[in-house]
């Protein structure tokens, strides 16, 4: 139990219950919802957002954010498809896309560390730049990636039920979960997210860590885009427009604070599951797609409200304790003085 709590965070039980309830609800509304094919689709859908969320979660814990993740994923897919069309073998194309993603991350890190723009604002602008560039490069048409051996990256199924993209995502989550909880690097991420000035005075170089996290995030986003391209057999310019927002929603739902310093991979996984099940379920029940956009926005606002409420409650608790302690101390000194006077 304690171990579960450590992996999934303190609100894990509520989250798991909610996720199960949502699944059950959609199962009742549509009996095909938990059919094998649909579950496979679900896992595929989870894997795209999930892969982006891994990088985003690390950034959020460090107190940063990358709103351009979705655009970076899409751009990565486009770059990969174009490389394959140019006759490059697909593994090389994959690496080119990853390097491209890393460069995107470096650009973000430059503006955050050197120009000192808030990550939230500067990646918002960069997202616009990438989305525009993608349309310039592709002329707003999907780019086909005709290479059957490449498609296998998206279509292989392990043990008959687990799609390869899903397995890749789970592996990434386990590896990054270990990095966060067990390594030096992971610990410093929490510390700079918790208090950047204190961390710097303790000998940590926050700029170096933040650069690494943006580069890592860019690569993971590009990887997600490449896998999506392999699954769809083409790279579509509008494929990942909500990628970053979904990733943030999932991470914050999963207990990672938007203010940094708190959260972990386990909660993140449930968060991703929850929002994917939710949107797939809405599709399955036949709700018009425009309303789904509304619903997704509402979940994000809800998750952020819970997050801010929690952070405030944490702060208040500390302040209350402090005042109580001081009052006790003050009173004990006052009685001490009285004793002394009467003596």
């Amino acid at each position: 139990m304690k171990r579960l709590k450590r992996i999934f965070g303190s609100n894990y039980l509520a989250l798991i219950v909610v996720t199960a309830a949502v699944m059950l609800l959609f199962f009742i509304l549509n009996n095909n919802f938990l059919a094998l094919d649909n579950v496979k689709n679900l896992m595929n859908a989870v894997s795209f957002t999930g892969t982006i969320t891994v990088g985003m979660a690390l950034l959020l814990i460090a107190g940063e954010v990358d709103l351009a993740s979705g655009a970076e994923a899409c751009f990565g897919g486009v770059v990969c498809a174009m490389a394959i069309n140019a006759g490059v073998p697909w593994p090389v194309a994959l690496i080119i896309a990853l390097v491209f993603g890393a460069c995107c991350g470096l650009v973000n890190a430059f503006f955050v560390n050197v120009v000192h723009i808030m990550g939230f604002i500067c990646t918002l602008g960069i997202m616009g730049i990438y989305n525009g560039l993608i349309r310039v490069v592709t002329d707003n048409h999907p780019i086909p990636a005709y290479e059957p051996s490449f498609w296998k990256l998206g279509s292989t199924t392990l043990f008959g039920i687990f799609p390869l993209p899903f397995v890749i995502m789970i592996t990434l989550m386990v590896v990054y979960g270990l990095i966060l909880t067990r390594t030096n690097f992971g610990r410093t991420i929490y510390m700079i997210g918790g208090n950047r000035r204190a961390a710097r005075l303790c000998g940590i170089n926050p700029q170096r860590i933040i650069t690494a996290l943006y580069v890592n995030n860019g690569m993971l986003a590009a990887l997600a885009g490449v896998i999506l391209t392999a699954r769809m057999h083409n790279a579509s310019p509008g494929a990942a427009s909500t990628g970053a927002i979904d990733a943030i929603t999932a991470a914050v739902l999963g207990g990672i604070s938007f203010l940094g310093g708190v959260g972990g991979m386990g909660g993140c996984f449930i968060g991703i599951l929850l929002i994917t099940v939710f949107s797939a379920g809405l599709t399955a029940t036949g709700l018009p797609s425009y309303w789904q956009i509304v619903a997704q926005g509402a979940i994000l606002v809800f998750a952020l409200s819970v997050d801010f409420f929690n952070s405030k409650a944490r702060k208040r608790r500390l302040e209350r304790d402090e005042i109580k302690r001081r009052r006790l101390h003050f009173e004990s000194r006052a009685t001490e003085n009285q004793h002394r006077e009467t003596d």
């Binding site: 929490y190 510390m191 918790g194 208090n195 000035r197 204190a198 005075l201 310093g261």
Partner: peptide, 9 residues
């Protein structure tokens, strides 16, 4: 609080 410690860790 501001420079010495990471309070929530």
């Amino acid at each position: 609080k501001e420079e010495g410690l990471v309070l929530f860790r």
